[in-house]
Design a protein around this nucleic acid. Structure first.
Length: 706
DNA sequence: ATTAATCCAGTTTTT
DNA sequence: CTGGATTAAT
């Protein structure tokens, strides 16, 4: 039997072969969770004769889904593995929704929050403020309100936003109506743009299920402790007859996203026939490492009694804590120590609480000649040059995407979001509904004077002097447009600047060429070689080369140009792994597995390290304020005072997760001063050692160097 | 109203 | 060093 190949121990085997029905598996760190899930899938297919496409596997990251499918492929077959529906809640929802609604556009969170801000800015808060007289509470900034709204969507399914706020933020009562109004208009606005964000995927999936019920024979949920109310309700809406949830409340680290341990805690009550299995045997870490993890986590309130059994008794290397004078001394030491290590780079990880540590760590490793690998390349996709390429790409793939259009048109001098939007709308008019036609073969019958005037603000006030002075296409004669384009009525739009006309001309060319381009890599090439990108390229390089005195040397500009060129090349390389536009563009937003760069020592945030393991682990920046991140700890509590799992408890769980990534060697470090973060005149930042070091009874080794 | 230029603060974790 | 807010300019 296939199950034997997995060498499951007794407790894993019991769980994997549990009867169909509602099963909760409490799987502590390193207890062979993945094997158990894979075993379960094998059992369902082989013993229960369930066909693979009737199995839904929900994971927390797409990478995890990928890995499990690979494990299934290796013990069953590739074909079977590919038939299982597996992915994150979001990815699976997206797949379903895209089938019935092909025009759906998944937008970056950033673009969505821009929409939110636009809607917000149309409101006037001063009226509400005057009522208060002495302002007791200040109204929220758009960013914070958006954050709050996103959070609300994840945790509250019944109450309206205003009602929910009234309960949780009573001091904001004077603004509730405005807030509610904003979010309602925000929802409408998104519809106009046809765009969705992550939450919308889940919310629309729920709607979809009401109309078209989907039935699986069993749903498996990994990282169940990190599901929130919204996700849990999605599981309920799938109305499974059989559910296999795997989680560990000690590793719940996503409260900021609404993750709700009560999903685990109330499992037995919600499913009266539920069976609970507990995996206690830890195969990953040595005793001293587990002792440390257990000692610290035991300060948190226990949900169920849990005793981890150590199976790996050697080697016996105690975790070491090292204290340094300056934060950079830590990184220096870490780099030197890694250099001496016998382990392969890929088996070593440096973990940090805040992503802001990553750059320094990476730099120090590089100086020591150690290659490193950053799993999260989010920052890469956030660079302006990459965003510009992708915006152009997204627009070419879907010319209805106004947001993408605005994003790259804004680079043209004289063009901001408002005018960019106007240009777009005029072109669509001129093309009788299609911007493509608007650029290539516009309808000349329009009275452009009227068209350009109509959209002006305050039309009622200005009756007959509401004429725009049409711009002459002649002003663009230096740009050497072909006659056909020169006759395009859009060129008469007075606010169309030289640069904007230049971009439009090239956009026309791009849209024509794009028709023949099928692969993402060649699309990137097409865009990269186009003058629109070259324009943006030059603009960014120049901007970045600008020194404080205002002068920019040719050398510097060249440097920056090269950097941008290198990034574009990386993007092309990433794109080459994908076969079609949609697959690639999705991966960019939904987050994908293959998007990591290079080989070497793993650089990860603690959050990103979840589910992974390494022979040798370094946890850096263990200072009070940084880890635990006290600022966060205190702020999160204010969301919900009763829930003790927030705040410091969550930070402690983070520490637990970090420690339990290590198999045999674990180092913890701290630096007591930070000179780099502040400029020379201001005071050096002084830190205290993280409380978790004390809680773990770790012996402090003073700094060696310095 | 809208964009460009300038100055200032602040720095979380993920789909 | 970037983004946000403020101010100046069109």
């Amino acid at each position: 039997m296939v199950l034997n190949k997995l060498n499951l121990n007794e407790e894993q085997y019991q769980a994997a072969t549990a009867n169909l029905g509602f099963n909760l598996i409490i799987a502590s760190a390193g207890t062979g969770k993945t094997s158990t899930i894979v075993g379960r899938i094998a059992y369902l297919i082989e013993e229960k004769k369930i066909s693979p496409e009737k199995i839904l596997l929900l994971t927390f990251t797409n990478k995890a889904a990928q890995e499990m499918k690979e494990r299934v492929a290796s013990i069953l077959s590739k074909k079977i593995a590919s038939q299982i529906e597996a992915g994150t809640f979001h990815a699976v929802s997206y797949r379903y929704l895209k089938k019935i609604k092909p025009e759906l556009v998944l937008k970056r969170e950033r673009d969505i929050s821009d929409i939110f801000k636009t809607v917000y800015d149309r409101r006037d808060f001063t009226k509400a403020s005057i009522y208060l007289g002495e302002l007791e509470a200040q109204y929220y900034t758009p960013q914070y309100l958006y954050q709050l709204y996103t959070f609300y969507q994840n945790v509250e399914l019944k109450l309206s936003f205003a009602d929910w706020l009234a309960e949780n933020k009573p001091e904001q009562k004077d603004f509730l109506d405005i807030y509610q109004d904003i979010v309602e208009e925000f929802e409408e606005e998104k519809q106009i743009f046809n765009s969705m964000n992550f939450n919308d995927l889940l919310l629309n999936m729920k709607k979809f299920l009401k109309e078209f019920p989907v039935k699986y024979d069993e749903i498996l949920v990994d990282e169940y402790q990190d599901t929130n109310k919204l996700q849990d309700s999605l599981i309920s809406d799938l109305k499974p007859n059989s559910l296999f949830c795997v989680g560990d409340y000690d590793q719940s680290i996503y409260a900021f996203n609404g993750a709700d341990i009560s999903n685990i805690a109330t499992f037995k009550e919600r499913f009266p026939n539920a069976k609970v299995f507990t995996l206690k045997k830890n195969y990953r870490s040595t005793k001293p490492i587990l002792d440390l993890a257990n000692k610290v986590i035991s300060r948190n309130e226990r949900l169920y009694e849990k005793q981890l059994e150590v199976t790996k008794l050697s080697p016996n290397i105690p975790p070491v804590f090292k204290k340094f004078l300056d934060v950079s001394d830590q990184y220096q030491w870490v780099a030197q120590n890694i250099k001496k290590s016998k382990n392969n780079y890929k088996d070593i990880a440096v973990l940090f609480r805040n992503n802001s540590s990553a750059d320094s760590v990476e730099a120090h490793l590089r100086n020591a000649g150690i290659p490193s690998k950053r799993r999260d390349s989010r920052s890469f996709f956030e660079t302006k040059e990459i965003r510009a390429i992708l915006d152009i790409y997204v627009f070419l793939a879907n010319p209805k995407d106004l947001i993408a259009f605005i994003n790259f048109m804004e680079y043209a001098k004289g063009i901001g979001p408002a005018i960019a939007k106007q240009i777009y709308e005029f072109l669509v008019k001129l093309g009788d509904g299609s911007i493509y036609r608007g650029l290539i073969s516009p309808n000349y019958d329009y009275n452009v004077r009227e068209l350009f005037s109509k959209n002006r603000q305050n039309t009622q006030l200005l009756l007959f002097d509401d004429f725009v002075d049409l711009g002459s296409p002649q002003r663009f004669k230096d740009l050497n447009f072909d006659d056909k384009f020169l006759s395009n009525p859009i060129l008469k739009y007075p606010k169309l600047s030289q640069d904007a006309a230049f971009l439009l001309y090239n956009l026309k060319y791009l849209m024509q060429k794009f028709q023949q381009v099928k692969s993402p890599a060649s699309a990137i090439s097409l865009i990269g070689n186009n003058d629109i990108f070259k324009y943006i390229w030059g603009y960014l390089a120049k901007q970045r080369a600008q020194t404080k005195t205002g002068n920019s040397s040719k050398e510097l500009i060249k440097d920056h140009k090269n950097k941008i060129y290198e990034r574009a090349k990386i993007l092309k390389r990433l794109a080459s792994k994908y076969q079609n536009h949609r697959a690639f563009l999705n991966a960019v937003i939904l987050g994908s597995n293959e998007l990591d760069s290079g080989e070497g020592v793993n650089l990860l945030t603690v959050h990103a390290s979840k589910g992974l393991e390494f022979d040798e682990v370094y946890i850096v920046d263990l200072m009070d304020g940084r880890f635990p991140n006290t600022k966060l700890a205190s702020r999160n509590i204010s969301f919900d005072e009763e829930n003790s799992s927030r705040g410091i408890d969550e930070e402690r769980r983070l520490f637990y997760v970090a420690v339990t990534r290590a198999k045999t060697i674990l180092y913890l470090t701290a630096g007591m001063e930070d000179k780099t973060s502040l400029d020379a005149q201001r005071k050096i930042k002084n830190y205290k050692i993280s409380q978790f070091i004390k809680e773990g009874n770790l012996v402090t080794f003073p700094a060696f160097n310095n």
